[in-house]
């Protein structure tokens, strides 16, 4: 007969190979860092860390939302377009006559409204997918195509250049020396990781991804959970859009967030979250994004043409998925 079950696993002997398979992305990151310290000129400086973190921050912010969506077994292709909408709306608000007359209120609104609207478009994605039982890749394709168009229509395709230090703090400012977007990025990662681990909502997300039918039969509000994760993904995209336009002091609806959905998906894949859903690691997505960013930086700083970087990026993703498959239990 079984003994009274103990909580927590009994100690297993340390399997080096299995350890590396599970932490493949982190290992690769460490190896790449070592390589850079040795080879890349001027790598060992705080400024380099700064540059890399700020460059990766927007991808990570979007990846947080993407991880949650993928945890339910879905996917969100619309994030780049939602970034464009959010990035287009913000300057329109604080450059409007209202925004110029009441700058404090204008700036506050320019933070809140675009993110909220991106979140609502995300909610639309969720509603569309659950109401019509459409596959997420098809459902979010609608906003992927239409969203950027909406942004372009709002701005007539024109670039909006601006200078608004208060608003641009989100992209250019620092808090105790740490860039604002890096703090936002870390806060979102921590919040999402905690949510998945400890809250009812987080466990419901994982059960929906793990076995949707079983979850539904156990009373989990599957449709509601799905709507919310897509809304959260929209919110993250909205925040990322604000960061991008702030850094560039300009908002170009044609270009903001272009290709971001693929970068976020790549980060999630490399980070180890399976696309079948049911398991998720937000910290993994962070590491995945850092790895991809570091590879890009390494190649660029060492004079390798950009086209080659794309090939290497593809190779990393393939390698990451391969090593994860090897780590699966027999």
């Amino acid at each position: 007969m079984a003994d009274a079950p103990t909580i927590g696993r009994k100690g297993a002997s340390f399997d080096v190979a299995a350890f590396f398979r599970r932490y493949a992305a982190l290992t690769a990151l460490i190896v790449l860092l070592a390589f850079n310290f040795a080879v890349t000129p001027n790598f060992a400086s705080w400024q380099t860390l700064n540059v890399n973190l700020t460059q990766v921050a927007t991808i990570v912010i979007v990846s947080v939302g993407m991880t949650l969506v993928i945890a339910t077994g879905g996917i969100d292709l619309s994030v780049g377009s939602l970034m464009a909408i959010s990035g287009a709306l913000a300057p329109m608000i604080f450059l409007s006559s209202f925004g110029l007359s009441y700058p404090a209120l204008g700036n506050a609104l320019a933070f809140v409204a675009p993110v909220a609207i991106a979140g609502m478009f995300g909610l639309f994605n969720g509603w569309f997918i659950t109401r019509f039982r459409v596959q997420p890749i098809v459902g979010t394709l609608v906003m992927f195509i239409a969203g950027r168009g909406i942004g372009q229509v709002l701005t007539n395709g024109n670039l909006q250049a601006f200078k608004n230090p208060t608003f641009q703090f989100i992209g250019l400012g620092r808090v105790f020396g740490v860039p604002c977007q890096v703090i936002i990025m870390l806060a979102l990662v921590a919040a999402a990781a905690w949510t998945l681990r400890s809250t009812l909502f987080g466990r419901q997300i994982l059960s929906v991804g793990g076995n949707e039918r079983a979850a539904w039969l156990s009373g989990v509000p599957v449709a509601s959970v799905k709507r919310w994760v897509y809304a959260i993904s929209g919110l993250c995209a909205g925040i990322a859009g604000l960061v991008v336009v702030s850094i560039n002091s300009s908002s170009d609806a044609n270009l903001v967030g272009l290709g971001m959905e693929l970068d976020a998906i790549a980060a999630v894949a490399v980070g180890g979250t399976p696309f079948t859903g049911g398991q998720a690691t937000v910290v993994g997505s962070l590491i995945g994004a850092l790895l991809i960013q570091l590879v890009r930086y390494t190649l660029l700083a060492n004079g390798v043409p950009d086209a080659a970087a794309l090939v290497v990026k593809g190779a990393i993703i393939a390698g990451a998925v391969w090593s994860q498959q090897r780590g699966k239990p027999t």
Binding site: P41, F43, Q47, V51, Q55, S250, L255, L300
Partner: peptide
Amino acid sequence: ARDKGRQVAETLLQAH
């Protein structure tokens, strides 16, 4: 493009 130019410039200035 402005954003890409910024990112590339940022990286290259850091390396050189």
